[in-house]
Every structure is written in C-alpha cells, then in structure tokens.
Simulated assay, not measured.
Amino acid sequence: MPSELEKMLSGELYVAADPQLVEMRVNARTLLSQYNTIPFEQTGKRQEMIGQLFGKAGKNVDIQPPFYCDYGSHIFASDNLFMNFNCVVLDCAAVKIGDNVQFGPNVQIYTATHPLIAAERIKGPELAYAITIGHNVWLGGGTIVCPKVTIGDNTTIGAGSVVTKDVPANVFAAGNPCRVIRELKTQ
C-alpha cells in the first residue's frame, strides 16, 4: 500500500496530516525560519541552506528572504535562479525550474489543490500536481502559477497574472486567467 507521501507525489488523494508529511513540513519550517533571518551579506550561508532545503539547487540560486515553502525537497532548481522577496512555493508535488529563471516579488507557485465537490473536500484528503517552469523564464511580480501547469522556455509572464493552463515557449503572456499576448522573437 502506498504511503501518503507516495500518493501525494503521484497526484492521488492523500492525507496531509500523515505523521511523515507533518514531520517533513516541520523540518522545512525550521530551516526556513533560520534562512529568513540570515544577514544579507551572508550569501554563502543562504546558498548552503537552500542546498539543504531543496531537492536540487543548481549554481547561483539567489532567493531573497522572506521565502516560504511546504517541503522544499520537491523543488528542483537549475542554475541561475533568482527569486525576489516574499515568494511562496507550495511544493506538495514536484516543482521543476529551468536555468536562468527570475521570479518577481510575491510570486506564488501552487502544486496543492483540493477536490472541487464540497462533500469530498470536507473529508480532508488533498491533491497535488507538478509544475514545470522552463529555461529563461521571467515571472512578473505577483504571478500565481496553479497546479499542473508547464511554462515553456524563453517565456515572460506579466505581473499579476494567474496561470491556470500551460503557456508555450517564446511568448509574452499575462492576465487573469493568463493568456498569450504575443510571440517573442528568439535570437
């Protein structure tokens, strides 16, 4: 029988109150409370802690505090990631982030969701679906990325957008819901 962690990571209904999941979240919160108080000039210390928290942290990962996540271990960041202040990543499923990605302030990445039918939702089990952000992507400030979304390479998402569906590569997309505004020339 699969564990609640295995169910969570495979997109099945799972119980978030499971002791293993609670322990993982407590460990992440402990690291985050330390991370968010590291003095600005101690870049190496912040990089080291992100390496402990994330499932993968490439070179030059710069996350401005405060930063919040559920587990951290399901965040897989490639090289040259910049997250501005106050970003939130609910990583109940995998969050894969390509090279050279920039997050504006207050960007929120949500893999977590709940059943839509109230009778099912109030029973308690939750759902989570992976999010993939391609290479060379810029998420403008206040962007929200919803579960099960893929954002293609070289794409820019305008500030304040709510991304509910996949966005192709090489476009500028914005709005609520987010939609493609125009294609971007590649070099």
Results as ranks from 00 to 15, higher is better:
15 V>E: 13
138 W>A: 12
54 F>W: 08
116 L>T: 14
65 P>N: 05
136 N>G: 07
30 T>M: 12
98 G>F: 06
48 E>A: 15
154 N>M: 04
79 D>Q: 06
154 N>T: 01
116 L>W: 12
52 Q>F: 01
183 E>S: 15
27 N>W: 11
133 I>F: 00
69 C>L: 06
133 I>Q: 01
19 P>E: 13
5 L>P: 00
58 G>C: 07
101 V>L: 10
44 G>F: 01
4 E>K: 05
81 L>R: 06
186 T>N: 12
28 A>E: 05
4 E>R: 02
129 Y>D: 07
148 K>D: 15
130 A>S: 15
36 N>V: 13
169 A>R: 11
158 G>P: 09
100 N>Y: 14
27 N>K: 15
177 P>N: 04
187 Q>N: 14
157 I>W: 03
146 C>H: 10
129 Y>E: 14
137 V>A: 05
130 A>F: 01
165 K>T: 08
49 M>F: 03
141 G>N: 02
4 E>D: 12
52 Q>T: 14
45 K>T: 14
154 N>S: 12
114 H>C: 10
128 A>G: 08
151 I>R: 01
175 G>C: 06
13 L>K: 11
150 T>K: 13
78 S>D: 15
143 T>P: 08
151 I>C: 06
112 A>V: 15
133 I>G: 03
91 D>W: 01
179 R>Y: 00
124 G>S: 08
62 D>H: 13
55 G>Y: 08
55 G>R: 10
128 A>C: 09
72 G>C: 07
120 E>W: 05
86 N>L: 06
131 I>S: 03
13 L>N: 03
2 P>M: 13
130 A>I: 02
115 P>Q: 10
187 Q>T: 13
92 C>F: 05
126 E>N: 07
39 P>Q: 04
161 S>T: 02
163 V>E: 03
25 R>C: 09
